[in-house]
Computed example of a mutant assay.
Amino acid sequence: MRATSSLSQPEGLELRPHRMQFVIDNLPSLVVCCAGGIYGGMEGVPYPVVGVAVFLCLMLVLLYRFIYLCRIRFRIGTEQLVCERGVLVRKVDYMELYRVVDFQEHQSLMQQLCGLKTVRIFSTDRNTPRLDLTGMRGKNDIVPLIRGRVEYNKRKKGIYEITNH
């Protein structure tokens, strides 16, 4: 996580998923790809071309997924959370911070072993009611930072939450 400013400055914070998240998300495909490459390179086995074809097809898919993961950017500004993603077609989602209502952190077993986590942000935004920041380092406290900016924006815009318990 690279901080470019604090809460009081107009710039924000830019986050990117850790590259180990690619291995976590694609472990079965990586195993099959390697097995196909090994099988296709062996002599005396039936249909080695099938192994090479599996290897090449999966390698292309995995390469695209890796590039996609590397191109994801999360920018936490003073008023918006911006998510950019895509390889051939870029999609940019904007979430107003004053609309954020809740947070959740999740770690799968593989993420725990790799020291990563997924931060889920819930909002009242129509286009993006849920935004997952996948592959964040486990030691980074992202939720308190976003929560502080959310509270600041709610006070700034005069938005108060009324609850019935």
Results as ranks from 00 to 15, higher is better:
82 V>P: 03
82 V>I: 13
83 C>Y: 05
83 C>R: 07
84 E>T: 11
84 E>L: 08
84 E>F: 04
85 R>D: 01
86 G>F: 03
86 G>R: 09
87 V>G: 05
88 L>E: 02
88 L>S: 06
88 L>P: 00
89 V>G: 07
89 V>Y: 04
89 V>H: 11
89 V>P: 02
89 V>F: 05
90 R>V: 12
90 R>M: 04
90 R>P: 04
91 K>N: 03
91 K>I: 00
91 K>D: 00
91 K>E: 03
92 V>W: 01
92 V>Y: 02
92 V>N: 08
92 V>M: 07
93 D>V: 02
93 D>P: 00
93 D>E: 05
93 D>F: 03
94 Y>V: 06
96 E>D: 15
96 E>Q: 15
97 L>Y: 06
97 L>S: 08
99 R>K: 15
99 R>V: 09
99 R>S: 12
100 V>Y: 11
100 V>A: 12
100 V>N: 10
100 V>S: 09
100 V>F: 12
101 V>I: 12
101 V>M: 10
102 D>S: 15
102 D>Q: 09
102 D>N: 15
102 D>W: 09
102 D>F: 09
103 F>I: 06
103 F>T: 09
103 F>G: 08
103 F>S: 09
104 Q>Y: 02
104 Q>L: 11
105 E>S: 13
105 E>Q: 13
105 E>I: 05
106 H>A: 07
106 H>F: 07
106 H>E: 07
107 Q>K: 00
107 Q>V: 02
107 Q>G: 02
108 S>L: 02
108 S>R: 01
108 S>N: 01
108 S>F: 03
109 L>Y: 04
110 M>Q: 10
110 M>K: 04
110 M>H: 03
110 M>L: 14
110 M>R: 06
111 Q>V: 01
112 Q>I: 00
112 Q>H: 05
113 L>W: 10
113 L>T: 02
113 L>A: 13
114 C>W: 06
114 C>G: 07
114 C>D: 08
115 G>H: 01
117 K>A: 00
117 K>F: 02
117 K>G: 00
117 K>C: 03
117 K>L: 02
118 T>F: 08
118 T>Y: 08
118 T>Q: 11
119 V>E: 05
119 V>G: 10
119 V>F: 04
119 V>W: 04
122 F>I: 00
122 F>D: 06
123 S>H: 10
123 S>R: 06
123 S>D: 11
123 S>T: 13
124 T>R: 14
124 T>N: 14
125 D>T: 08
125 D>Y: 09
125 D>P: 12
125 D>K: 11
125 D>S: 15
125 D>G: 13
126 R>V: 05
126 R>I: 04
126 R>P: 14
126 R>L: 06
127 N>D: 00
127 N>E: 05
128 T>D: 09
128 T>K: 15
129 P>S: 13
129 P>Q: 13
129 P>T: 12
130 R>V: 15
130 R>L: 15
131 L>R: 12
133 L>W: 09
134 T>P: 00
134 T>C: 07
134 T>K: 13
134 T>D: 11
135 G>I: 07
135 G>P: 09
135 G>K: 06
136 M>P: 01
136 M>W: 01
136 M>S: 03
137 R>F: 09
137 R>K: 15
137 R>G: 08
137 R>V: 05
138 G>F: 12
139 K>P: 00
140 N>S: 08
140 N>I: 06
140 N>A: 10
140 N>Q: 08
141 D>H: 14
